[in-house]
Design a protein around this nucleic acid. Structure first.
Lengths: 346, 346
DNA sequence: GATTAGCACTCGATAAGGATGAGTGCTAAC
DNA sequence: GTTAGCACTCATCCTTATCGAGTGCTAATC
């Protein structure tokens, strides 16, 4: 169905289109890609490729533009070829990221910023999901008579805190005892485990504090919930305004609104649980209408081999998937390494 | 120089232009604003107003457009008139803000979001500057051998934390003693006070911990610094894309880039230390080139009468200053009240 | 002396026509 | 199967014409 020459023509068109953003004609291909055949032959091939759904025209006598299907084919071929990462480049980026690294959230945000600067695309990042990471330290601190501060430090060095109110005050010494107990029993457990019942199970052992526990438990549970919230960072949104495909202000407004609204995009990124490290969603493969002519490349970052977040790039379907995927891979590896390295110090 | 009728004509033009975004002609004014004179007379007045710098034309036979100077005049008059705030509306907004309020940072972010939704303008907010607020609780928590978590809770209920590393470990009991000492000595002091020397002064009293203190002091100081960082929240950036004055994609790109870069805008908002609660910067009054045809209205929010942050609106100079200033006032008062109310529970 | 009706004039916006050229599909020759 | 040649298509650009909202000026009016 797709013989060697058709493939070469298709790839040539994709290459040219990625850099020019203009529909590609048969003469352009024969001129700049040495296929050894005349434009007329290429025209025939292009016509076939159009029938197969890999190309389309913007009007009856225009050049051809690659379809989502074409990018999909291209990407699948390219990605399967083992990609070599430029180690020096990786190290450069790593040292920049390490320089400003204070805590995990910051690291992820800075990564998105740098990624956008380097690629000139809009960068996205999901905040780390610490639900599955282990708790390193937990503490209850009385702020005033009715308010208690819950602090959870996890193995990544991430610190999360929530304040909750108690109807009736709990004496300081009891709070201290509770803190100690929590530390003993919950250290090295994950929030996910705790939610599955570890918390109440643990607490049943402590009859002495029964009444306090019963009052504090729902508050802690609620705090845990708020800790789980996934956030989205988007950096370099203005980069979208530079692409010729988004010169229509209405179109770009829809896309940026979609990013600003966050929730659906978080869904999209979080749900997409591909086994691969790099996931590429092209045009229509994206569920939500506003980004049906965008592509999103995402990579995961991991802690102890467990995916805890994502970093990605959003732009028009006409993008240099290969080079962007490489860059993204560098970022994802670097983030993971920095987290895990930090983690070693425990 | 500006007699009553000229003023009425000018105001009429500003009113019409704010709602239509089109240059205003003399006939439009005579039709919709009953000035009791013919279009010809209005034309004469308009010509005078143009000579005085309050109006300009987009081309030689176009209608008139108000200048920055005109808006300035208009705003000064309007703002000086005592503005009544719709108490029911204020209460409505307040209850929405209170519903989701957990901590100060969140409150400010949510306010910006709601403000943008209500006004259909881009909302800006400076994160609370807690430098001047009083510390309610301070605590050092050992995370592992080399890392210590510093937690500061201030009177607004805001919790800030930073992790810092120590070359050599400090035993847990000494850390506890230090924490107690810090609490005794620093409670109800502000970070600003501490930076002015309170910290070292306090520590000289404790000879026993001299060596620990000398090691930990710079780390704490550094943490304090990082706590001071002012952040900017921008919400509803896409609203800018809906204004006819920003239909040129290059222009709007410049503006959004400026917002995204944050730093200069933070400068602009933070530096502007007007005594009034509401500050209005019109067009050229803004120092930075990218926003020289934008206006920014800001209001402060306060804790115990001290300004600790700002919330504002950014849009084209053609904006309904009066109504927006009113809305903004509602928000600033609500935020202040919620903070201070929260604070009462201490 | 201020106001206004009348009118010539300006200029952006819109539409229509024509030329240009990049590109195609098809046919017939190689 | 490949390709040269050619008619055809259609977006883009340029020119020209028309339209109308709006102005400034002048002369008549109050």
């Amino acid at each position: 169905m797709l013989d060697e020459r058709k493939l070469r023509v298709l790839y040539a068109i994709i290459d040219s289109y990625i850099s020019s953003a203009e529909p590609i004609g048969s003469r352009t291909i024969s001129k700049y890609h040495d296929l050894g055949v005349s434009p007329a032959t290429i025209r025939n091939e292009m016509s076939d490729l159009e029938d197969l759904g890999y190309l389309s025209k913007t009007h009856s006598s225009s050049g051809r533009v690659p379809s989502d299907k074409a990018y999909r084919l291209y990407v699948d071929r390219m990605i399967s070829n083992e990609q070599k990462i430029d180690k020096r480049r990786k190290q450069e980026i790593k040292s920049i990221l390490e320089r400003e690294h204070k805590e995990l959230d910051q690291l992820v945000q800075n990564s998105a910023k740098l990624l956008s600067q380097i690629t000139s695309y809009t960068a996205l990042a999901l905040s780390p999901q610490i639900k599955e990471t282990k708790i390193k330290h937990i503490q209850l601190i009385p702020i005033d008579k009715t308010q208690i501060l819950l602090i959870i430090v996890n193995e990544t060095g991430l610190v999360k805190n929530t304040v909750f109110k108690m109807e009736n005050p709990i004496p300081d010494d009891q709070l201290l005892a509770l803190t100690n107990m929590l530390n003993v029993k919950l250290k090295n457990k994950s929030i996910a485990e705790i939610e599955k019942g570890a918390l109440s199970e643990v607490f049943t052992e402590f009859y002495r504090y029964k009444s306090e526990i019963e009052r504090i438990l729902p508050a802690i549970n609620k705090s845990m919930e708020s800790i789980e919230t996934i956030d989205l960072y988007a950096d370099g949104i203005t980069k979208l305004l530079s692409f010729p495909e988004y010169k229509d202000i209405e179109k770009v407004r829809t896309i940026i609104s979609f990013i600003e609204d966050k929730n659906e995009l978080i869904q999209l990124l979080a749900d997409d649980t591909f086994p691969q490290d790099i996931s590429i969603k092209i045009g229509n493969e994206n569920f939500y209408a506003p980004i049906k002519d965008c592509s999103i490349i995402t990579a995961t970052y991991k802690l102890d081999g467990e995916t805890i977040g994502k970093i990605g790039i959003l732009g028009p379907t006409r993008m240099d998937y290969v080079s962007l995927a490489k860059t993204l891979k560098i970022f994802s590896e670097n983030i993971s390494e920095i987290i895990n390295n930090y983690n070693v110090s425990k």
